[in-house]
Design a protein around this nucleic acid. Structure first.
Length: 604
RNA sequence: CGGGACGUAGCUCAGCUUGGUAGAGCGCUUGCUUUGGGAGCAAGAAGUCGCAGGUUCGAAUCCUGUCGUCCCGACCA
């Protein structure tokens, strides 16, 4: 068998160099760029006659020198080929088969492929090449920004991304803040195995059922098939529950307050950077308590830690509340969540906190002898936030120039861009000096002294969302100043640029970063509030849900059937619920008695 | 997992309908000139056309399969 592309020997020797066409085509549509109507396929052994010149290819397929490739033409046509070599001798009897082919009227011109996205509205032209405008296509914008800002790369593993150093920097800042909050509330870190024996996972029925479709299994160790399959953890309640059972004997052993920073794996069908990947990073807290009230208190405390982190660090405003029964964590008594609103009107669950009651303690046998000499099951909780929170932050704050990172999350708080002129590189040294001063004051900064145009660097750091840019050029060196440029403000905004004395740089940077953090949060909060309509009747409610108007706030009956009906009709589900705040008595969605207020939205 | 689209140089894509020597722009390398919002000139390097089969004298192009990505649904942190 010949290799691909290798030409049979008998043809090879006949290949001539490209030659000029012998004739002009009878019709433009005969040219390569035009489609002659339905020129028959090879299988049809098409034949054509053009301007008296008859050509055929090696299969005996006739073609003219103007439409097919020059070399190929030369092979067969020019040389008066002996078709016997190819077994098509019948076709070579020109007189017998050559006949004119009608030239189709307009031809069927091949139109250039449509651009992927048509953006005829000038307002929707990209500001940065390779990043589509955010408002035109949030999905495309999001993916482009994640890649262009070098947060992630796709990997050869389906559904798994590489978290690049800049993206990992975001994760480290999330870890830093959350970890401190966990420690401040009395928790310790530990690490549990990645693999969970099947039998263990099966112990909590609801839990198994909930995760079954997305569990990956290890079935072999080397060549040997395992007698018991091992699940790659989709979450760690099972393995941790078993260990807690070993550790707890007395009420004096409680509470256990442990957090784990880990990766987990869920066999997802559709994936997107941060929002949904098969393997993802998260933290999962697991606690065990002697009393139900204490477990509930813990659940709510951690929910508040998440809310506080989202709002004050990631600058993402959220609604905290109780999940409906259908959205509850498999096996939990009650699930609480914080929910953020994305620019397209879809909600993004950013963290969850579960009161597991005694369900898991019973499944994994976590029991203790209480002070009253009774053996009792413990009350457990679990709570988690994943790198999905980064996705929420990216979508909430980014703009057409790229990422905008809130200062507290930014791997780099400020970047120096020195401007050099021929024979004047003082700015570079000045920038390094100033950067050293800032670093010593605790700021995360870098000097971009790469060999690129200043404008190029501005655009680059805009895409990567560094909150503050510090320009320093010859004029500044002379004047003893620098120019601070805020990423959160638009070009031309009077607040965007500010010239400050070099010797007061640290104070000004501090003030600017704080202002940026606050301003970004306020902006996002305004968006959330503007997109939290209260619907008062069913028609309005349905319309708002369908339009993705935001977090549609209604009084709700709390019934699963009602929720399912709303979902089928509008695509929206409850995000979370809270206590009624007035005398409302009927559910806006179905008219039954209302029991709670609920936010409804389509969600990620 | 259903419906749709797409895999060609690092990136964005053209070429495919009608099989005939692998293309452009940007980026990259080197040199010079530049540098306060993605610089200019010159020279240069770079692709087993996702992968595997099949058809053919010959496949980026046609056929089958497969893997991956994106979009819309369903499901989920």
């Amino acid at each position: 068998m010949r290799q691909r592309g290798e030409v049979a020997p008998q043809v090879e020797k006949r290949i001539l160099r490209p030659c000029e066409p012998a004739v002009e085509p009878a019709c433009p549509c005969m040219r390569g760029e035009q489609g002659a109507q339905g020129r028959a396929r090879d299988a049809d052994r098409a034949r054509e006659f053009i301007d008296g010149t008859v050509r055929l290819d090696a299969q005996g397929v006739l073609f003219d020198a103007l439409t097919a490739d020059e070399a190929g033409r030369a092979v067969v046509a020019g040389a008066g080929i002996d078709a016997g070599e190819f077994g098509h001798d019948a076709l070579l009897r020109r007189d017998g088969w050559a006949r004119p082919v009608a030239c189709p009227r307009g031809g069927r011109g091949r139109s250039p492929r449509e651009p992927r996205r048509v953006m005829s509205d000038p307002a929707l032209q990209p500001v940065v090449k390779e990043i589509p405008p955010k408002a035109a296509d949030l999905s495309a914008w999001y993916t482009a920004v994640c890649l262009k800002a070098e947060l992630v790369s796709y990997s050869p593993v389906r559904g798994c991304v590489v978290l690049r150093p800049y993206g990992y920097g975001l994760w480290e800042n999330l870890q830093k803040h959350l970890d401190k909050a966990f420690k401040d509330t009395g928790h310790e870190n530990a690490y549990f195995p990645l693999l969970i024996p099947e039998g263990l996972l099966l112990k909590e029925a609801e839990h198994v059922e909930g995760f079954a479709p997305e569990v990956a299994w290890v079935t072999h160790g080397g060549q040997e098939e395992l007698t018991e399959r091992l699940a790659i953890r989709p979450t760690s309640e099972a393995i941790i529950g078993v260990m807690y059972a070993q550790w707890v004997e007395s009420y004096r052993d409680l509470p256990i307050l442990i957090n784990q920073w880990a990766n987990v794996l869920r066999w997802e069908k559709a994936t997107r950077p941060f929002l949904r990947t098969m393997e993802f990073l998260w933290q999962e807290g697991h606690t065990a308590h002697a009393h139900a009230a204490e477990a509930r208190e813990e659940t709510l405390k951690m929910l508040d830690v998440y809310r506080e982190f989202a709002e004050n660090v990631a600058a993402v405003p959220v609604y905290a509340g109780i999940k409906s029964a259908s959205e509850r964590f498999p096996g939990a008594v009650e699930t609480f969540s914080i929910e953020a609103l994305m620019p397209d009107g879809k909600a993004l669950q950013s963290a969850t906190s579960h009161d597991l009651g005694q369900n898991f303690a019973k499944a994994y046998d976590i029991k203790f002898l209480d002070a009253d000499q009774q053996i009792k099951y413990a009350y457990t909780t679990s709570w988690g936030m994943s790198w999905r929170m980064l996705g929420a932050m990216i979508m909430t704050h980014g703009d057409d120039r790229g990422l905008r990172i809130p200062p507290k999350m930014a791997p780099l708080e400020a970047v120096f861009v020195p401007i050099v002129r021929k024979g004047d590189e003082r700015a570079v040294a000045a920038a390094h000096d100033a950067a050293k001063t800032l670093r010593e004051a605790g700021f995360r900064v870098r000097v971009d002294d790469r060999d690129q145009q200043p404008g190029w660097k501005y655009a680059e750091w805009d895409v990567r969302g560094v909150p503050l840019r510090i320009e320093i050029g010859p004029r500044d060196v002379d004047a003893g100043t620098v120019v601070l440029v805020r990423r959160d403000k638009a070009k031309g905004d009077p607040e965007q640029k500010q010239s400050v004395p070099l010797d007061q740089l640290a104070q000004h940077v501090r003030v600017s970063l704080d202002a940026i953090q606050l301003s970004m949060y306020e902006e996002a909060k305004a968006f959330l509030h503007e997109h939290t309509p209260r619907a008062n009747d069913r028609a309005e409610f349905t319309r708002l849900c369908k339009e993705r108007a935001g977090m549609v706030d209604i009084t709700w009956c709390g019934r699963a059937a009602c929720e399912a009906h709303v979902k089928a009709e509008t695509g929206a589900t409850t995000r979370n619920t809270r206590a009624l705040d007035g005398d409302e008595t009927s559910c806006v969605a179905c008219g039954e008695a209302a029991t709670v207020r609920a936010y409804f939205a389509q969600s990620y």
